[in-house]
Nucleic acid binder design. Structure first.
Lengths: 148, 148
DNA sequence: CATATTGCGTGCGTCGCGCACGCTAGACTT
DNA sequence: AAGTCTAGCGTGCGCGACGCACGCAATATG
């Protein structure tokens, strides 16, 4: 039996998942980083930054995409010099996707931008409150209903 | 200067905005409601439920979409009997988009499902903590950096 | 050694989207 | 009152991303 707490969170999530919101976030994050970095290619960079060099299949599995999509995105990023394909020494049919220095720099820039942006919006909050909120949000997302 | 609080929230948002997560949420919400209700058409129903009968242009403005997209989605929903086009009595060139009873029932079902789903994941939280979290999340989304 | 399997890239069809155009109806100017 | 401009809607068109299925190379398996 849902109470108003559930509805309140649901409304907030609805606002957050709105199409325009998503585009705007990515727009700001990737501003000035070149044409290759956009809403489409960002998950590839982000995924590689999390896990390190990885095969296309594994990466596709993580970001919830078909392997063909990862291949095409990786090609675009490779042409822009943000990503490098290197042969897997242990398996000669596999090619590992790895970030170049430029790719690492780009993803680090976006991370800093997003974090700073969030901090700005929390500037007026009591410091302890912001900290507990961050921890609760993390717990909600990880142990929440949308991870399985 | 970002601290770990900003990064923690950023990571959580990143997980939440992942493609697979989004699809999965909509999948569960719209399960069994017919083919017409999916990730694409849902914002139209949701927007109409919030504001009541409305013109296509106004609705497009709210959900961050071109008018043509609203038109096509409305047509699909109209064929499924969830939406009705009625002439605007005050302006004969305008057509108001309004939910039918079936459309209202569908959107109410999804609302209850999402709220219940969220409540389930918060069942183990201390009750007061969940309430303050909901209020903080609401404030974060509304007054946050992604609303302008 | 022969066959099945894995991993990658590519062609094809599908779908959603934005843009631009046409059409109708209201608003406005003279 | 008539002509012109603007607002609102629907539709054709091209673009881009996606999933699927196929082909090719390399490995695993019997």
């Amino acid at each position: 039996m849902p109470t108003d707490v559930g509805h309140e969170i649901a409304d907030a999530l609805g606002t957050l998942l709105k199409r325009g919101t998503r585009e705007q976030i990515y727009r700001r994050l990737t501003e000035g980083l070149g044409e290759a970095v956009d809403e489409v290619t960002y998950p590839v960079l982000s995924g590689l930054a999390r896990t390190g060099p990885r095969s296309a299949a594994g990466l596709a599995d993580e970001i919830g995409l078909d392997r063909s999509g990862v291949t095409r995105r990786a090609t675009r990023l490779e042409e822009a010099g943000l990503l490098r394909r290197e042969p897997d020494p242990a398996d000669r049919r596999a090619t590992l996707l790895a970030l170049t220095d430029a790719g690492r720099a780009a993803i680090e820039t976006t991370r800093q931008r997003l974090a700073a942006h969030i901090e700005d919006s929390l500037a007026s909050w009591p410091p302890g409150e912001a900290r507990t909120f961050a921890r609760q949000l993390h717990r909600f997302v990880d142990h929440g209903p949308f991870t399985a």
